[in-house]
């Protein structure tokens, strides 16, 4: 029965990979990568049970941690175009513009359902 679960996870991973390759927008791809990572965590756990070595769950836990941090890092990079502090990593001549962009992004994020 774990074989059936592994096959179902494989089918789900293939479909998610198709969405990952053909996603029209950038955020489709990021969400598909996140879902793909979740399915990978489940596949590692199921394969651990399938081969009689449930110690694979440690690897699955580590993969879940890396998947979450990677998704947040990619989203932060796409918003600020930098992985460090969004203001301090800019060159000095670009600093006011970067600060203005960061303030605007924070205002839009805080406004929530404000109509455009």
């Amino acid at each position: 029965m774990f074989v059936a679960a592994a096959l179902a996870i494989g089918v789900a991973m293939v479909l998610t990979f198709i969405r990952l390759c053909t996603g029209p927008t950038l955020y489709d791809r990021v969400a598909a990568v996140n879902a793909f990572g979740t399915e990978t965590v489940l596949l590692i756990g199921v394969i651990g049970f399938l081969t009689g070595r449930p110690d694979f769950l440690d690897i699955a836990l580590l993969y879940a941690l890396i998947n979450f941090v990677g998704t947040i890092a990619v989203l932060k990079f796409f918003r600020y175009r930098a992985l460090g502090d969004p203001v301090m990593t800019r060159t000095p001549d670009a600093t006011p513009d970067a600060r203005k962009n960061a303030v605007e992004a924070a205002a839009v994020a805080g406004a929530g359902s404000r109509p455009s």
Binding site: T25, Y27, V30, I72, L75, R79, V108
Partner: peptide
């Protein structure tokens, strides 16, 4: 986070 980034963009 994905939805918020998409909305902000």
């Amino acid at each position: 986070a994905v939805a918020n980034a998409a909305f902000v963009s």
